[in-house]
Simulated scan of single mutants.
Amino acid sequence: MASRKSQSLLLLLGKRLLQLVLGLVILAVTVGYVWLYTPSIPRAALERMYANAESQFLDLPGGTRIHYRDEGPRDAPLTLLLLHGTASSLHTWEGWVAGLKDRYRVVTMDLPGHGLTGRTAEDRYDRAGMVAAIVAVVDHLGLDRFVIGGNSMGGEMAMAYTLAHPDKVEALILVDSAGLRLDLTNRSVPIGFRLAAISWLRPLIVRITPRSLVARSVAAVYADPARVTPELVDRYWRLLRMEGSREALMKRFAALEREPPLPVERIDKPALVLWGREDHLIPLAVGRELARRLPRAELVVLDGLGHVPQEEDAARSLEPVKAFLAHLEEERMHSDNRQQEAAG
């Protein structure tokens, strides 16, 4: 009888202990969630912070609002349209725009789910959705033929747009471009990207996105993390937290799982393939493959720069771009002369 009572007492104590442990775990998780929870920021507040005098907004009939900037002379010899990468914004091109807009017309835009465009009414962040947004801006501005460029995801969308609208594109500038293969499980990939690639973590990421995670991810795409300023991290972190943008970004990562490599061999346009030698997100080997498979590509490797050379060192990364554009101008002039001679 005493033995049965002892066993019952032990079972009761074990049950109470288990309940206590579970309660402590629930409390710890609740406190941790409340402590780490990262609230969204209203669109209007971010527009006040990160729109400038050059910022314009294209309001589409369905309710989508696309942020873009159109700078430089309208009668420029060449027009450029530049597209940013994943979790970035048109701000990444500000250094290049400053160095190009005296001679060229330069259009930059925030792609769906990013920057001050944010979540769209269509809620599509695959290639088709991105290309549709590019088409909307191109048509709105009445762009005829132009040079399209992009970094990372932006390079992928530049190539996707070219495949869909080849008559619009004069040439491409592809900076550490996606579009072939991308291994997000590699430990050299920024931690934020690796986490977003895990589908079951995505609902958590839309609510918990600490600044430290963004800071580590931005530093990982620079060859020299010392170049990453607190203001730069703040901009990435705040724009990521626009209401709806984190949900949109998770849908972009989901789309990555379904999209095959682009048939880049079909892009018969002059292309400058620009690559940071220290790119650990999309290694130089991918850049060499891209340049080999594009029919008319020139590869330029930038020593000492990482995945976002246009942002890490705008002046140095812009040097081969200016040479490429000058060559395009010269080719166009020769072509115009030949046409005039043939007509005369």
Rank of each mutant, 00 (worst) to 15 (best):
L239Y: 06
V147S: 07
F324H: 00
D279E: 08
V106I: 08
V21N: 08
A133H: 08
H114Q: 12
T117Q: 13
L9H: 01
P166G: 05
S217D: 02
A196P: 11
L100Y: 01
G23L: 09
M333K: 10
A87M: 11
A220W: 04
R266T: 09
A314W: 06
L90F: 11
L249W: 03
V300N: 03
K269M: 10
V308N: 12
D59K: 02
L184I: 04
A197S: 15
K101G: 04
E247H: 14
M109I: 08
K269E: 11
E47D: 14
V214R: 00
S177A: 10
P295W: 06
P225E: 09
A76S: 10
L180K: 11
D110C: 05
A2F: 13
A326G: 11
R48V: 03
E265C: 02
A51Y: 03
V106K: 00
L46T: 00
E170N: 13
R288V: 13
D110T: 01
W237K: 00
T117I: 05
P283Q: 02
K101I: 15
D336C: 15
L249K: 05
A314C: 00
V189T: 02
E47S: 03
S6I: 15
H114S: 10
P210G: 01
P295V: 00
S88R: 05
P263W: 00
A226V: 05
P230R: 00
N52E: 12
G14I: 12
L81H: 06
T64N: 05
P112G: 00
P73Q: 01
T92L: 06
K168P: 13
D70L: 03
R105H: 02
V31N: 02
